[in-house]
Structures are given as C-alpha cells and as structure tokens.
Amino acid sequence: QGDIVVALYPYDGIHPDDLSFKKGEKMKVLEEHGEWWKAKSLLTKKEGFIPSNYVAKLN
C-alpha cells in the first residue's frame, strides 16, 4: 500500500509523463525511484512522476 504525500510546493511537469500538482495537493505514492516517484493525485486521479523533494509523507 502506497504512502500518502502532500505537496510542499507547486510543480509544473516538464516531461509528458510528469504529474503536475499544486501546493497542498495530496497524492498516493505508487513507486519510489530515487529522486522521482510515480504517484497518483487524489484530486485529479492522474498518474505521473513527481520530484520527491517537493512532497512530504503524511503519517
């Protein structure tokens, strides 16, 4: 089961498979690959890669 993270900063995706998000948006982490994680937005239901240093895990 994936962790839920919250965006600390907004992110505008650079690549087509990036997931753009707004500050405060919550996402479910699907896979962790070093600095880039695959996640699904709980708001938009879209999936893509996010920079892990832009988010914090919720406990």
Rank of each mutant, 00 (worst) to 15 (best):
D12G: 08
P16T: 09
F21K: 01
W36A: 05
A56G: 07
G13P: 07
W36K: 11
V29W: 02
P16N: 08
I50K: 00
G34R: 05
I14A: 10
G13R: 07
K40I: 13
F49D: 04
K26I: 15
V29D: 01
N59G: 13
Y54V: 04
I14T: 12
K46H: 08
G48S: 00
E35M: 13
P51T: 01
A7K: 00
I50G: 00
L43P: 02
K46P: 00
I4Q: 04
G2H: 12
W37S: 07
M27A: 01
L30Q: 05
P16C: 11
F21G: 00
G2D: 11
E35K: 13
K26H: 14
K45S: 13
D18T: 14
L43Y: 10
Y9K: 11
E32A: 14
S20Y: 04
S52I: 09
D17H: 12
P10S: 15
L19R: 02
D18W: 10
I50S: 01
E31Q: 10
S52D: 04
L8A: 03
L43N: 07
W36E: 04
N53G: 11
F21R: 00
E32W: 11
K38I: 11
K26E: 07
K40M: 14
S52T: 07
I50M: 03
G34L: 05
Y9E: 07
A39Y: 02
K22H: 08
L19C: 03
D3N: 13
Q1T: 14
G34A: 06
K57N: 07
E47D: 06
L8C: 11
A7N: 00
I14G: 09
A56F: 11
L43C: 12
E32I: 15
N59T: 12
K57R: 14
G2N: 11
V55H: 01
E31F: 10
L58G: 06
Y54D: 02
W37Q: 06
K45Y: 13
K45P: 03
E25N: 02
F49N: 11
D17M: 11
D12H: 14
I14W: 08
E25Q: 04
P10E: 11
K46F: 07
G24Y: 06
L42T: 05
K46R: 12
A7Q: 00
L58Y: 11
L19K: 01
L42I: 07
A39W: 02
Y11Q: 01
P51V: 02
S20E: 05
K23C: 11
P51N: 06
A39S: 03
Y54C: 08
G48K: 01
G2L: 10
K46V: 06
K46E: 09
L42R: 03
N53Y: 10
G34N: 06
N59M: 12
K45I: 06
K38C: 11
S41V: 03
K26P: 07
S52P: 12
K38F: 15
P16L: 08
K46Q: 11
V29R: 02
T44D: 04
K40N: 04
K22T: 10
G13L: 03
F21M: 04
L30P: 01
V29M: 06
M27K: 00
V5H: 05
I4N: 03
D3V: 14
L30D: 03
T44L: 03
L43Q: 09
L8V: 07
L43H: 09
A7H: 01
S20Q: 06
K23R: 11
E31N: 07
G34Q: 05
K45F: 15
K38S: 05
S20N: 06
Y54W: 06
K22N: 08
K57D: 06
L43V: 11
F21Y: 01
I50A: 02
A7E: 02
G48P: 01
E35L: 14
D18F: 14
F49R: 13
N53S: 15
L58K: 05
F49S: 06
K45Q: 14
L58Q: 07
S52V: 09
L43K: 10
K46Y: 06
L42K: 03
E35Q: 13
E47S: 11
A39N: 00
I4C: 07
G2A: 10
M27D: 00
W36T: 09
M27W: 01
E35D: 12
Y11I: 02
P16H: 09
S41F: 01
K38N: 05
G2R: 09
G24R: 04
A56M: 15
G13W: 03
D12L: 12
G48W: 01
H15K: 11
F49L: 11
G48L: 01
D17P: 07
D18Y: 13
L8S: 03
K40P: 00
S52L: 06
S41L: 04
N53R: 14
G2S: 11
D12I: 15
G2V: 10
G34W: 04
E47M: 10
G24L: 03
K45A: 13
L8N: 04
S52R: 14
W36R: 15
E35S: 13
K45G: 15
A7Y: 01
K26N: 07
L19D: 01
V6T: 06
L58W: 12
T44M: 02
Y11S: 03
K22E: 09
Y11A: 01
L42Q: 05
